[in-house]
């Protein structure tokens, strides 16, 4: 048998008996509802931006700054997908890739969350995959060291060999973890929420 025929047969053996679940269309409607909700949220966020932009003294009057807006988004249960900063787009095929991400407080490192929401203990179907990208160029090839702490005092340290890059970061407890990240003579911090997976 030639390779094309062998391949056809192999594909039939592998998936020929698979059938879609009867609630496939329900899954489509669920996605549709999420898409609409996301669009509504984007429109609402856009409206807020427009209103804020028309009140130039808003920040001065309230003492708010862009940093405090970022801070308020920390450890929120759902981190929305947003266009990645330009320096963090290496390896993505899209021109403006959208992913859930958290930026370090100094803006020197980004955690791109492939396994969002992060869970402790990890979920069975999705692992806690995080892609770390450093904004400053790497000068040494050491690991990325992550020192994580919870407000109650729980500490946990782990490393990503080779420095910022793909990783699976499982933390021992659910909660709002404060991370101190050290790599290639740089340090930054960020907060990451690990939720308990639904039982």
């Amino acid at each position: 048998m030639d390779i094309e025929s062998e391949l056809r047969q192999a594909m039939t053996d592998a998936v020929g008996a698979e059938t879609a679940t009867p609630d496939l269309v329900e899954g489509v409607w669920r996605k549709r509802r999420r898409h609409r909700a996301r669009n509504r949220a984007l429109i609402a966020a856009g409206a807020i931006v427009v209103v804020a932009a028309t009140i130039p003294t808003y920040g001065a009057l309230t003492g708010d700054s862009q940093e405090s807006v970022v801070s308020s988004a920390r450890c929120t249960p759902e981190i929305p997908s947003r266009v990645l900063p330009e320096w963090a787009r290496g390896g993505f095929s899209e021109k403006e890739p959208r992913m859930p991400y958290v930026l370090g407080e100094h803006g020197d490192i980004i955690a791109i969350l492939f396994g969002s929401p992060l869970s402790s203990p990890p979920r069975k179907d999705v692992s806690n995959k995080i892609l770390w990208v450093s904004r400053p160029p790497l000068t040494t090839s050491g690991p990325l060291t992550i020192k994580a702490s919870l407000p109650g005092g729980t500490m946990f340290t782990t490393q990503v060999p080779g420095g910022p890059g793909p990783s699976i970061i499982d933390l021992p407890k659910a909660g709002c973890w404060h991370l101190t990240l050290t790599w290639s003579q740089h340090t930054d911090t960020m907060d990451l929420l690990y939720s308990s997976p639904p039982s």
Partner: peptide, 15 residues
Amino acid sequence: FVAARGSALLRTALL
């Protein structure tokens, strides 16, 4: 359409 072609699309996606 989903009821009729869902399984065929799923097999392609699996591969």
